[in-house]
């Protein structure tokens, strides 16, 4: 992996996020939705907690992750610029990694303003800083998985809408898995529980940073990006 190549791709994609309305729409809509949940908790129930931020973000991400990444590769396929990219001295995995990191960076900038909630709450009452750090770490990891899966979704089609739907479908399954466990026998349930995103998130959000959860997130991201790379490589043998 050539870091300079990844950096070039990352910078280019970030620039096109912020040159187009995409970044601003994502950030604004996310903050409006989250702000509503946050303030209703704060003022109606008089609770000084960031729990809503941590609970609602994965849910909102179900839609935001596919929306942020849907054009990343499908658009290059459609306009033919993928051919330009592939024929440059850069590997498929560098392209995929760069694009994934760009989406993750945008997501990071989306989360950043929610730190103002944290500041507000520390002024108003006492917060458990450990669980806040854990929560944000968890959000970054959950986001990484959703975005990596969505990058894969974008790589399999040249149609943005199809990419969005494929990505939404996969992340929705990963998200819902641990919510249907009651109906299943224990042997199956433990496996599904391990695959589900939310199960690992709830551990980290409590402030417990377990290597098993980190390994889960890292391998989910790695696997998704590996598949996306494979899709690009397969084209050479088409």
């Amino acid at each position: 992996m050539n870091l300079n190549n990844i950096k070039s791709i990352l910078r280019k994609e970030l620039r096109s996020f912020f040159n187009s309305p995409v970044a601003y729409i994502v950030i604004i809509v996310y903050l409006i939705l989250l702000g509503w949940f946050f303030t209703s908790n704060l003022f109606v129930y008089n609770l000084a907690t960031l729990r809503t931020v941590f609970e609602m973000t994965p849910f909102l991400l179900l839609f935001f992750a596919p929306a942020m990444t849907m054009r990343l590769i499908s658009e290059e396929k459609k306009s033919g610029t993928l051919e330009l990219l592939i024929t440059k001295p850069i590997t498929e995995s560098e392209i995929i990694t760069g694009k994934f990191l760009a989406a993750w960076t945008l997501y990071f900038f989306t989360l950043l303003p929610t730190l103002s909630y944290y500041i507000t709450l520390t002024i108003l009452g006492s917060l458990d800083t450990g669980s806040v750090i854990g929560g944000y770490l968890g959000l970054l990891l959950v986001g990484a998985v959703f975005l990596a899966v969505s990058v894969f979704g974008s790589s399999v089609t040249e149609n943005q809408v199809v990419a969005f739907i494929i990505s939404l479908f996969i992340v929705f399954i990963l998200f819902m898995l641990d919510k249907v466990l009651f109906y299943l026998p224990t042997s199956v349930a433990t496996i599904l529980e391990y695959i589900s995103i939310d199960y690992h998130f709830s551990n980290i959000a409590r402030g417990v940073i377990d290597s098993r959860d980190i390994i889960y997130y890292a391998s989910a991201v790695g696997l998704s990006l590996y598949f996306a790379t494979a899709v690009l490589q397969k084209r050479r043998w088409a």
């Binding site: 280019k12 620039r15 096109s16 187009s20 306009s79 033919g80 610029t81 024929t87």
Partner: peptide, 10 residues
């Protein structure tokens, strides 16, 4: 390449 694909937003 054929059709000269370019990034139109750059």
């Amino acid at each position: 390449p054929e059709q000269n694909p370019l990034y139109l937003d750059m």
